[in-house]
Simulated assay, not measured.
Amino acid sequence: MPIYEYICTQCGNEFEELVFNDEKPVACPQCGATETEKLMSACSAKVDGGGPNLEALQGSSCGTGGG
């Protein structure tokens, strides 16, 4: 059962909801309105070996627009 992020078009409240049935409208917990929109969520992933080597990037043009 996925957790989705929503925004209420009536009051602007952003909230998360565990969704059992995509066909049923999701109500805003703040105002109770069912005029909600699903938001695009960021995802994350774990990569073996950790993140980028920041020391190796220092002094390089990586991420600086090439200058």
Results as ranks from 00 to 15, higher is better:
M1A: 13
P2W: 02
P2G: 09
P2N: 15
Y4M: 06
Y4Q: 07
Y6T: 01
Y6R: 05
C8T: 00
C8P: 15
Q10D: 06
Q10K: 08
C11G: 05
C11Y: 05
G12T: 12
N13T: 07
N13H: 13
N13W: 01
N13P: 13
N13R: 08
N13L: 05
F15I: 15
F15C: 06
E17R: 03
E17N: 02
L18W: 01
L18R: 15
L18H: 07
F20W: 00
F20R: 07
E23M: 08
E23P: 12
K24I: 05
K24W: 04
K24Y: 07
K24F: 02
V26L: 15
A27P: 15
A27E: 14
P29D: 09
Q30P: 11
G32L: 15
G32A: 03
A33V: 09
T34Y: 09
T34H: 14
E35Y: 04
E35F: 08
T36C: 02
E37K: 11
K38Q: 10
L39T: 07
M40H: 07
A42I: 10
A42P: 12
C43E: 11
C43Y: 01
S44P: 03
S44A: 04
A45R: 05
A45T: 00
A45N: 08
K46C: 10
V47M: 09
D48L: 11
G50H: 00
G50F: 00
G51D: 00
G51C: 00
L54E: 07
L54Y: 13
L54H: 08
E55C: 07
E55K: 10
E55R: 13
L57T: 11
L57A: 10
L57F: 05
Q58F: 07
G59S: 11
S60Q: 12
S60T: 06
S60N: 10
C62Q: 05
G63W: 02
G63I: 02
G63A: 10
T64K: 01
G65A: 01
